[in-house]
Design a protein around this nucleic acid. Structure first.
Lengths: 196, 196
DNA sequence: GACAAAATCGACACGCGCGTCGTATAATAA
DNA sequence: TTATTATACGACGCGCGTGTCGATTTTGTC
């Protein structure tokens, strides 16, 4: 069987193939039929592992590797300039923004707009909190090094939230209104300017 | 017939009833059947006016009255404080944010995530541009009155964009992660602080 | 009232996606 | 090899949404 490739779990295989479908069509529009087709397996074969698109979708999102924070931690350990660390992070986010239609993230947005799912919600919130935390610590690090002086230690969390919210806003604009690379650059620049 | 209420056009009636369905279920999940039911008319009756949910949805969005800018224009004409004008606008936006699940806007987000529709896109972009413009002018007005001094005349458009993007980000967070009223207040406050 | 035009109805045939289940195939053990 | 178990298949009946179209009702006009 071409399906059970040596050493690859069937579930992993399904999740991988299904992810491509969700990326393209979003969550709501996807049917079990679509996934059967994308996987090249039978209805029965699929139902043996998953009994709804929601189950599959959750699995995909949970398996998504979390954000990699080593960028921040290593930067601070090596005593790099805080502004450089943040700028690098923004650069990385910008690149993701520009290829948002090739990741599962767009489908996740759609999912949350009209579906409630506590488990997924918790996962996303957790991720959000972690990101706020690491940015916040980086800001504090920058303040301590006198590289960031327009905000105080008390502001770090607020400002970290502010940054992420702006990135979310840019995401939505990128998805629905096709904003330019220049606008993104310009906006990220403003954020830096509000720090130094 | 209870349907053709005196003086109300059939299309208006359909649009009104259908809007409630889209508000509740989003765009993708809605069927013609749903709308037939919501309107209390027959399949044939509906198809005489609209032949797809997309057509109806577009009509709803086009009929949505545009944002009311009199708030800004009147404020400036009466020489009100620019910060007060902006704060008032934010307050208004905040209230909308908090009841986003009762407006068509959430469905519009969903629509744009996975559907292309030039006409609708243009309408939304146009609206966006107008909002940037009026905020930008208000900022310039505030700078001229020495109420806003952390930015210059050249920055007004960038900063206006910045504000709207932040509001969009807050929208998404409000929809998917149930942010608190306090967080919104805190974030809007930061925007004001970056001006004065 | 009588007639024509317009509006409305709802039954119908069709296709699709669903979830199931008996059968067939493959893997494992004896 | 044979027996046992796990895995995979796909046909089936079902319900739902679709778009159509002839029949029916309402509206407008003389």
């Amino acid at each position: 069987m071409a399906i059970t490739k040596k050493g690859i779990e069937k579930k992993e295989y399904i999740v991988e193939k299904a992810a491509a479908v969700f990326v393209q069509k979003g969550f709501t529009a996807v049917t079990m039929e679509d996934i059967v087709e994308a996987c090249g397996i039978s209805r029965g074969g699929l139902y043996a592992y998953y009994s709804s698109t929601k189950e599959i979708f959750e699995d995909i999102v949970f398996r998504e590797k979390n954000v990699d924070y080593s960028f921040f931690t290593e930067g601070m350990e090596n005593e790099k300039n805080s502004i450089q660390i943040l700028t690098g992070f923004f650069e990385q986010q910008k690149n993701e923004l520009l290829r948002l239609d090739t990741t599962i993230r767009r489908a996740v947005y759609e999912f949350f707009l009209f579906h409630k799912e506590a488990a997924l919600e918790d996962a996303v919130k957790q991720n959000y909190r972690e990101t706020v935390s690491i940015i916040s610590r980086t800001l504090a690090y920058g303040i301590a090094r006198n590289e960031i002086y327009k905000i105080t230690f008390e502001d770090t969390e607020k400002v970290a939230n502010h940054m992420i919210i702006l990135l979310e806003g840019l995401s939505i604009l990128a998805l629905s209104k096709q904003i330019s690379r220049d606008l993104i650059d310009e906006q990220l620049e403003i954020m830096i300017k509000n720090l130094i």
